[in-house]
């Protein structure tokens, strides 16, 4: 059977499924195997390396991104299930070279050491502020407990989020 070079990969490999995501404002079409996580799709298929793979089991929060405005663990999210969704990663936070207030607050408060957890911390903090439930430092600590920082920059992370929260 003749195969067109322009045929979508999903038509050639029956296991693949065509999906469309809006990632950091841009439409992305992918032919993807159902077992591909959103995290692997972002990193391996779209070259967005900001989102980190830490534990790959939903325990560390390094892979946190915003899907339709809500913070989720992209390592436990199957990309095919999010067909049509809007995804925001750490690469999509700054506008015209100006950092997002949460990014700026992390710098102002030196809220990291090695930086590996930071993209997840920042996406998670943006989700937390949008949820509007945190009022006190205790609330911030509790509602950020899904993001582990092995350098233990926690006091500065809480201070950074408090600053961004107060300014929002």
């Amino acid at each position: 059977m003749a195969r067109s070079h322009t045929a979508p990969a999903a038509a050639l490999f029956p296991g693949l499924i065509s999906i469309e995501l809006t990632v950091n404002g841009a439409k992305v079409k992918l032919d993807i195997a159902p077992w591909t996580t959103l995290l692997d799709a972002l990193r391996d298929r779209m070259g967005l390396m900001g989102t980190k793979k830490g534990c790959d089991h939903g325990q560390c929060g390094a892979c946190t991104v915003l899907v339709d405005g809500r913070r989720v663990n992209s390592c436990l999210t199957l990309a095919v299930m999010k067909d049509g969704a809007e995804v925001i990663t750490v690469e999509g936070l700054a506008t015209d070279g100006v950092l997002h207030p949460v990014q700026q607050a992390f710098i102002d408060h030196d809220a990291f050491q090695c930086g590996y957890c930071t993209p997840g911390q920042i996406c998670s903090a943006i989700g937390l502020i949008a949820e509007g439930k945190a009022k006190t430092p205790d609330d911030i600590r509790e509602l950020m407990s899904g993001n582990i920082c092995r350098c233990a920059a926690y006091p500065n992370i809480v201070a950074a989020i408090q600053q961004a929260m107060d300014a929002s």
Partner: peptide
Amino acid sequence: GASAQLRNM
């Protein structure tokens, strides 16, 4: 239970 991210999912 769990974390804010997991509760969202």
